[in-house]
Amino acid sequence: MIMKRTIDEITGSSRLRRTRKFGWTRRLVRENRLSADDLVWTVFLCEGKGVREEIPSMPGVYRFSVDVAVEETLRAAGLGIPAVAPFAREPHSVKTEDGAYITNPDNLVNRFARDLKKQTQDIGLITDAALDPYTTHGHDGILRQGEIVNDESVEMIVRAALSQAQAGSDIIAPSDMMDGRVGAIRDALDANGFQDVAIMSYAAKFSSAFYGPYRDAIGTGGLLKGDKNTYYIDHANSGEAIREAGQDLLEGADMLMVKPGLPYLDIIQRFKQAFSVPLFAYQVSGEYAMIAAAAANGWLDRDRVMMETLLAFKRAGCDGILTYFAVDAAKKLQQG
C-alpha cells in the first residue's frame, strides 16, 4: 500500500509559492537587483570622422570614430551609466614590436579621453594599459625571442598608465597580467601627482577561448603569435586566481576584476567571500556573440537572456559589470 500524505503534511505550514503569486510580492522579496549604476559600457574606437561601423562577429556592436564615440558616451551617461571603457583599433602603421604607441598622447584612447572630459565630468573613464592593440604580434607585453618579457613590459605599461592619466582617465585597468605591474603603476601615479587615479586590476584574466570577437574588433586576430598561456591564468585554476588578487591588493589595487564573466561565476563568488573590495566582471565578446547569434537564429530571447546574465553577475557578488550590452540594458531598465 502506497502511503499518501497531503501537501500540507509534506511541507508543514510553509508554501514557498505564496511569495511568488503576485508581481508586487516578487518585487518585495527580490534578493538581487540590477540598475544602470551597475553597468560599464565597453566601446571600440577607430580612426576617422563620423564613423560607425558594425563588427561582423559582434552584431549590434560598433567601432566609432572618436567624435561619434563621445556623442554616444554622452547618451550613455544620460541613461545613468556611470562609466565607459574604451578599446582602440589602431592602424597597423602605428604598431611596433614594443607597442610604444600606447604612450602617445594622440592615440585613439587618449584623444577620446581628452575630448570626453571636455564635454563632461559626469561619466567615469576606465582605460586599459595593456599593449596588445599596439603591438605587431598581438601580445599584451613585449615579445623578445619568443618570450613575453615581464619587467620590460611593465616599464612600458607604466608609461602607458601615466599617458592615460594625463589624458583624463579616472581608473587605470591593466589587463596584461604581468607580475608587479599594479605596484609599479601605483608608484608612478603617486609620484606624478595622480594620487586620486584608481586602479582596477584585471586580477583574474583567464586564458580563454571567449576573446575571439574582441580580437577581431581591435584588429589583432590575425597578428597573434602563439598563445597567451604564459601570462594569463589557466582556466583550470581557482586558487591561483585568489593569489593573484591578493597580491594585486597588496600592491595597491583599489578594485578587482574577473574576466571572462559567465564561465567564472565561481571565481567571482570566491573573490567576494575573500576580499572586501569593489568587484567587477567583464562580460566578454564571446559571451556577447553567443547570445547575439542565438537570438538572431530565434533560439533565445535576446533581451531576456541579456538581463538574466547581467543579474547573474550581481547574484554571484559583482558590484559592477563591464558589458557590450550596457546601453541596451540601461534602456530596458529605464523602461521598467
Rank of each mutant, 00 (worst) to 15 (best):
S35D: 05
S35I: 00
D37N: 14
D37W: 02
D38I: 06
D38M: 12
D38N: 15
L39N: 03
V40A: 07
V40L: 10
V40M: 06
W41A: 06
W41Y: 10
F44K: 05
F44L: 14
F44A: 01
L45I: 06
L45C: 01
C46A: 15
E47Y: 08
E47P: 08
E47V: 10
G48H: 12
G48V: 06
G50S: 12
G50P: 06
G50D: 14
G50T: 11
V51Q: 05
R52F: 04
R52L: 08
E53D: 14
E53K: 13
E53H: 09
E53P: 04
E54S: 07
E54C: 04
E54Q: 12
I55L: 06
I55V: 14
I55T: 10
P56M: 12
P56G: 06
P56Y: 10
S57W: 09
M58G: 04
M58H: 04
M58P: 05
P59W: 07
G60R: 11
G60Y: 04
G60C: 09
V61D: 03
V61E: 01
V61C: 04
V61M: 04
Y62M: 09
R63G: 07
F64N: 01
S65F: 03
S65Q: 11
V66L: 04
V66Q: 00
V66A: 00
D67M: 07
V68W: 02
V68T: 13
A69M: 09
V70P: 00
E71L: 10
R75C: 09
R75T: 13
R75P: 07
A76S: 09
A76P: 02
G78W: 02
L79P: 01
L79I: 08
I81T: 04
I81C: 00
I81K: 02
P82E: 04
A83K: 00
V84M: 08
A85E: 08
F87P: 00
F87N: 02
F87S: 08
A88P: 15
A88Q: 06
A88W: 02
P91G: 11
P91W: 13
P91C: 06
P91D: 10
P91F: 12
H92C: 05
H92A: 12
S93W: 12
S93A: 14
S93Y: 12
K95T: 01
K95Q: 12
T96V: 12
E97C: 06
E97K: 13
D98M: 03
D98A: 05
D98C: 03
G99A: 13
G99I: 10
G99M: 11
G99Y: 13
Y101H: 14
Y101F: 15
T103R: 12
T103L: 07
T103E: 08
N104P: 01
P105R: 05
P105C: 06
D106G: 12
D106N: 14
D106H: 10
N107Y: 07
V109H: 03
N110P: 02
N110G: 08
A113E: 09
R114Q: 14
R114K: 15
K117T: 01
K118S: 14
Q119D: 09
Q119A: 15
Q119W: 08
T120G: 13
T120N: 09
Q121V: 06
Q121W: 07
D122V: 13
D122R: 15
I123C: 06
G124K: 15
G124I: 05
G124T: 07
